[in-house]
Amino acid sequence: MNPEAGRSYPGAFVGIMLLLGSIVIGITLLGLGVITAAELADPGHFLAVAFDPAVASALWITFSAATVAVLLLGLVGTSLAYVLARSRNRFAGIAESLVDLPLVLPHTVAGLLVYLIFFSRGPIGSPAAGIGLLFEDAFPGIVAAMFFVASPFYINSVREGFEKVPPHLENVARTLGASPLQVFLHVTLPLSTRQIASGAALAWGRAVGEFAAVVIIAYFPMVISTLIYSRFTTGGLAEARSIAFVMILLCLCGFFTYRALIRFGGKRHDRV
């Protein structure tokens, strides 16, 4: 029996597409290879940097601020995503454009917008300062910047998830005695879990990687991007590269774990 039986013929077209597409993967792999080779050449230096308290602190601030930003997005972004998914008027179109705005703005501009809103004389920063909540050079400022730049990734993904839930399911649930809140909690939300998780992961990744918007409102306490930039300008390439390698390892571990969880937990939602 031919072992190739049942396989499709790749053909020249698919081959060309594969070649072109592999450039994207190739560049990433090349970068990872270069940095890994450099770090493995001097493991002592890498370990010293990896266990540097400043690096650990920056990692903790980065990951915790990104997590808080995503949790806040889960609270307010989910509501907006639902409204956008179920609205068909022109105001929804305007709102969608506003949601997408951080995607097209240069990150420095996004940072300036955040700064103008949250600095001590800004429309939110000023009253917040009155109750002791400061954003400039403070953890809440980092969260605000991350929230702003990550919001379109979360909201768009969740909106697509809600749009995939057929309105008929919600209609049936209403006629069976469910209130709108019950319908949302028992039908719409469970059927959108995969897109919510996917949006949260994308938003978290975006938040972790943010530099320009964060640095404008809060250079300190340093997030990992700020620390890498700072070490690059003061300590040189080797120091910045080792911190970057730590970050790469942690992010790869995080995303592989996340994908495994999604594959496991999302199986039942493939029935939708």
Partner: peptide, 13 residues
């Protein structure tokens, strides 16, 4: 009032 649609709209989860 209960409704049954053509696609039955069973909750897939």
């Amino acid at each position: 009032i209960s409704i049954v649609y053509q696609d039955y709209s069973l909750f897939p989860h």
